[in-house]
Amino acid sequence: MSTLCNFCITLTVIGLILTNAVFSEARVEVPELQVDAIRYEYIALQKSLWLYLDKEGTSKNAEFRKVYDSHRKFVNDNFQSNFEVGRYDILNHYEWSLLERDLLQIDRMFDYYQNFMNEHNNTAEVNERAILDICETVLRNDNVFSMSRIFQELELVMVKQTLYYRAMLESTDQICHTQQSAQQFIYSLYSDIALTELKGYTMMQFSWMMLRIYGKGNFSQEVELMRMDYVKRTERALKLLREVMRRADRILWRCDPGKFEQGKNYDEVTRLLQGYIENEVDLNKEETCREDCAFYQSTRSEGCFKDLYCARQPRCSGKLYHCTYVDADMWVCPA
């Protein structure tokens, strides 16, 4: 009895091109942001340092080491990123262009301040004049530069003139450009602004402490007014942020690239389902040929009998479904 039985298993070939899309409309409450946790940590540090400076009987050198080393550690532990130029270029507003310039100025000043402290680890070797130069630069208050003015402008534009709302609308329309959801864009914008503002606030507090240590004044009133103003501005910004974040879409859509390149910006699934011709002898481990198609509605290829026809086609390593019997001779042209 011949063991070669002709039948055909026919399936439809389906090719799939995978596109990247994520869609979610769930709403969540805004948790405490990382930048806010850093801010709370610094306000606590600031308070403890001023209490230390108010203690009697502490030497000038001890005060200097305490303030200098505490700030260096805090800065290195919490500030590793810079404000990026052009990251929010979809905010095509004149007010934003001015704010971005000011934020970059604070960031560059902070880089110098941080690098100075890291390059002068030994407080005994720190030059007083160099510290005073930093303090004078940070606390400068004129038409050329004023940290306090920048802080007020930030609140005016972002909160009172609701640029956060406008940013939400812009990012919703520009999702292909930002590759972020509107909520992600607002979160990132707020975090970068708040972190840069905290850098400026940290430098101002450091400067007043150093001037106090060097006997240039008491500055208690300036420090308290600045702290209260900073806390109130932050509360107003957070209140608006929560409202904007609540309304902002969490939809994220990965838009088509300008040019498709397989393996880089898309993948194609081929031969997922396909027609397959097999001899019955290769569909069972006993190498028999005595069943009908109903027996093989869900099976797999078990071997290749005497390396006949099966050896001339790629073997199916998956499952075989829906056997169809062909009761005729036929020519098969392998694909």
Rank of each mutant, 00 (worst) to 15 (best):
M210K: 02
L163F: 10
G15R: 13
A311W: 03
N141E: 13
V28P: 00
Y296A: 01
G57I: 15
K306Q: 12
Y190M: 08
M168D: 11
Q262F: 05
C289P: 02
V231N: 03
F295K: 00
A37F: 00
L53Q: 12
H177V: 12
R271N: 15
E153F: 09
T299N: 00
Q183I: 08
R250C: 11
K285W: 06
Y40S: 13
K285F: 07
G258K: 10
Q152D: 14
D292M: 04
Q274A: 12
M209Y: 08
M210I: 12
Y201F: 15
E222D: 14
N121C: 07
K285H: 08
L91Y: 01
E286H: 03
Q274W: 14
N118E: 15
L195D: 15
I213P: 02
E235I: 11
L104T: 05
H93K: 13
N20F: 15
F260V: 07
Q46S: 15
S70K: 12
Y42T: 04
L273G: 06
C333W: 08
K73C: 06
W50G: 00
C5Y: 09
F145Q: 02
L189T: 03
L33M: 14
Q262I: 08
L238M: 12
L225R: 07
L45H: 04
S24P: 01
F295Y: 09
R212D: 06
W208H: 13
L238D: 10
L139H: 04
F23W: 10
E128G: 02
K73W: 05
V28M: 07
D69N: 13
M203K: 01
M117W: 05
L154G: 10
V75Y: 04
G275Q: 10
Y201M: 04
N76E: 12
D77T: 12
K66C: 08
E32R: 11
Y321W: 11
A237V: 05
W50D: 09
Q221I: 15
N122G: 02
D142K: 07
E170Y: 04
H322S: 11
Q174R: 13
N115Y: 08
Y266M: 10
D77W: 03
R250K: 14
A21R: 14
S317H: 10
R101L: 07
L225N: 08
E153V: 05
S81N: 11
M210G: 00
R39W: 01
I9Q: 00
S220W: 03
L18P: 00
L49G: 03
I38R: 08
K285T: 14
F110E: 02
C255D: 02
D173Y: 07
L11W: 04
S59G: 15
E56C: 06
Q80W: 10
N115I: 09
E95L: 07
T10N: 07
I251N: 12
Y42H: 13
Q262D: 05
E84Y: 05
F185A: 08
V67A: 10
N78P: 02
A311N: 09
Y190S: 13
L51Y: 05
D329A: 07
L98C: 04
V144G: 01
R149S: 11
F206D: 01
M117C: 06
D89P: 02
K66I: 04
L53Y: 10
T19F: 09
R242C: 06
K264L: 10
Q205E: 11
V332N: 02
Q184C: 07
M109Q: 14
Y113K: 02
D111G: 03
A335L: 13
